[in-house]
Design a protein around this nucleic acid. Sequence first.
RNA 1: GCCCGAGUAGCUCAGUGGCUAGAGCAGCUGUCUUGUAAACAGCAGGUCGUGGGUUCGAUCCCCACCUCGGGCUCCA
Length: 651
Amino acid sequence: MSAATSETITVSLPDGSNRELPRGASGSDLAAAIGRRLAADALVAVVDGEQWDLGRALPDGATVSIVTTNSDEGREVLRHSTAHVLAQAVLGLFPGTKFAIGPAIDNGFYYDFELSDGAAFSDDDLDRIDAAMRAIIAADQAFTREESDTSSGLEVFADQPYKREIIERVDASEISGDGTVSLYRNDGGFVDLCRGPHVPSTGRLGHFALQKVAGAYWRGDETRPMLQRIYGTAWESDAALKAHLERLAEAEARDHRRLASELDLISFPEELGGGLAVWHPKGAMVRKLMEDYSRQRHEEGGYQFVVTPHLANGHLFETSGHLDFYRDGMYPPMEMDNGTYYPKPMNCPMHCLVYRSRQHSYRELPLRFFELGTVYRYERSGTLHGLMRIRGFTQDDAHIFCTEDQLQDEIASLLDFVMSVLRAFGFEDFTANLSTKDPDKYVGGDEIWDKATGALRAALDKYGLPYEIKEGDAAFYGPKIDIDIRDAIGRTWQLSTIQCDFNHPERFDLEYVGADGGRHRPIMLHRALFGSIERFFGVLIEHYAGAFPAWLAPTQVRVLGVRDDHDAYAASVVDRLRANGFRADWVRAEEPLGNRIRRAKLDKLPYVLVVGDDDVANDTVGVNPRGGDVERDVAVEEFVARLTADVADHR
RNA sequence: GCCCGAGUAGCUCAGUGGCUAGAGCAGCUGUCUUGUAAACAGCAGGUCGUGGGUUCGAUCCCCACCUCGGGCUCCA
C-alpha cells in the first residue's frame, strides 16, 4: 500500500489494486476516477463490506467496491430508493398519512401506509401515485443523508407513530445500538427515516411499475393495525422491467387453477367447501399414473405398504403430542359414544402403532413403511390456494425405523431415492435446506442430535446437492432436510422432506431387541417425497404448462380419420394402441380435420395421428407430435415403438 | 381470521334504477365428406352468488352472509 499523505487517501479495490485519491473523496469521485461508464452506472459504494451512499467521504485505507445497476445488490438499492419515492408521492397526495416501512423484496419493493380515517387505496389512486412518482424522478432530487440522535429523530417524526416505534427500537439497541439514526431528505421537504443507502438522486430511477394494493399487519402481527401495502417492481432498465412483467404473465398462463379447469383435470365445487377438490377423470388418470409409479418405486426400494384410517381417537394424538403441539392445525373433534375422534393431520402416529403391534428384532431393521395417506388439516380460509394449499390431501408418507448405527447409510440411500424419483418427473435443478437444532427447544441428547445432523449433512455432501444451513430451524424432535425444486420457468417449490425424529419412538415406547438381547429404542425418519400428491400435481401442471409428457398424459394419442369412411380404420388403430397399453381415442369425422386437430392441440395431447386413404391401404399413420413436425406414412408398428420409447424414457 | 377486489349462460366476458339481460367459445340438431390449429345454419341455455332492506319498480343502490382472487416473515 502506498503511503497516504495529509492531502490524499489510499483505498484498495476488489481486483487488489490500490488507488490514491484526494482526502475527502467520495465513492462518486472514486467511480469517476476509474472510468466514465462506471461513474454513470454507479449506485452505491461498498466500504469495508458495508453499503454506503456514493456521496460519503471515503476513509483512508478502506477496501471499496462500486455497486452498479446491473447486479443483485444494485437492483436492491434501486428498489429501496423507489420505495422511498413511493412514500414521498403518497405523503404528498394524501396529507395526514402515517408511513411505516418500505423495504426492497425479491423482484420489487413495497411500502406500508396508514391513511387517515382508515381509508384504503383504489386502483385509480395507484395511477395518481405513479404519476407523482414520475414527477419526483423527473425532478432528479438528491437523496441527502444525515445522522441524528434518537431524541431529535423522535422530534422530526413527532406525528409518525410507526417511525417513532422504529426509532425507539433502535434506541433499545435492537438494531444499531449506537443511539443514532439516519434520515434521508429530498428537495421538496420530504424526510424519511431510513437505514439507507440510496441512489445519489431520484433521476437514477424510473424503470418501475406499481402492481397492487394489499392489507398487511404492522410487523406481520395480527394483533396490530392493518396497514395498506403498495407493491411495485423496479429494474435497471425498461428492457429488464418488461422481461420481468413477461415472466409474470408466463406464470399466470401456467397457473394450475386455470389449466386444471381448461384441461378438465380437477375442480373446487363451492358445495364441497373451501380447500377441497374433486378429481375429474383426466386429472384422476394423471394421479393414478403418479401413484402407480410411486408404488412401483417404493416396492422396488424395499418399502412395505401399510394402510391406516382417516380418524383416530383423541388418545392417540395425546400420545403423539399432536393435541399439545398441533391442535390449531387439526380439524375440530367429533364426539362419539366411546370417545372423542379427530381426522388425522399426519400419518406418523398410526405408523407407530403398526410398528408396535409386535416385537421387532434388530435383524429386520431398517423397517420402511409407506402409505399414500390422506390427512386433513385446518388451514385458515385466507391461506387456501388452489392445490398448493388445501385442507384435505394425500401424503406419500414413509416412516423408517432404524438403529442409530444404520442412520448414516439409511439417510444417504433415502436421499438417493428421493432425488431419483423427483428426476423421473422431469425436475433437474435442486437445492436443499438443512435445519439444525434450536438450542432452546429440543428433545433427545446432544450426542444423537450431532450424529443425526452429521448424517444428513454427509448425505447432502455425498450426493453433491447444494444446501443452506438453517441454524435452529429444526422441529423440536429432530433435524431435517427440505428439498426445493426449480421449475421450467425458474420458480422454486419446496417438495420433499427428510426428518429425523427422536420423539415419537419415545412417546410410543417403540423398541427392538438387539444382538445383545436387550431392548433398544429405534430412531424414526419421516419422509415425504411429493409432499402432498395434490400439491405435487399442481407443481407438475405449472412445470409442464399442462402439456404432460407422454408417460403422464391422460390421453397419449388421438386418431383422426380424414373422412368418415376412414373412421373404422382409425378405431382399429386405437384398438392396437390400447392393446399395447396406451391411452388412445379417436374422434368421428363429423367436423373438418383442421378443427379436430385444433381441439387435440388445445388439449395438449402428445400425439395426433391422421389417417386417410394411403394409410388405410398401407397400414400407416400420419404422425403429428406436440411441438414437432408432421410426418406422413409412418408404419403403425413404428409409431408403437416410438411411443413405447417415450414412455420408457419418461418423455 | 383480517384488509382490498370480484361473483351475470358450462367457460371467458359485455351491459343497464324501467319494455323480453347480450356476445364469443363450448353443448344439441341438421347440412357439409374434409390430409394436419376454427365449415355453415338453426336450437337450447340465466332466480344476474345467497338472504334481507330502500324503491311504484333492484342484476344495478344499502346491509349481512357465502365463495373465489391478491396480500398479511422480508425489518427503518
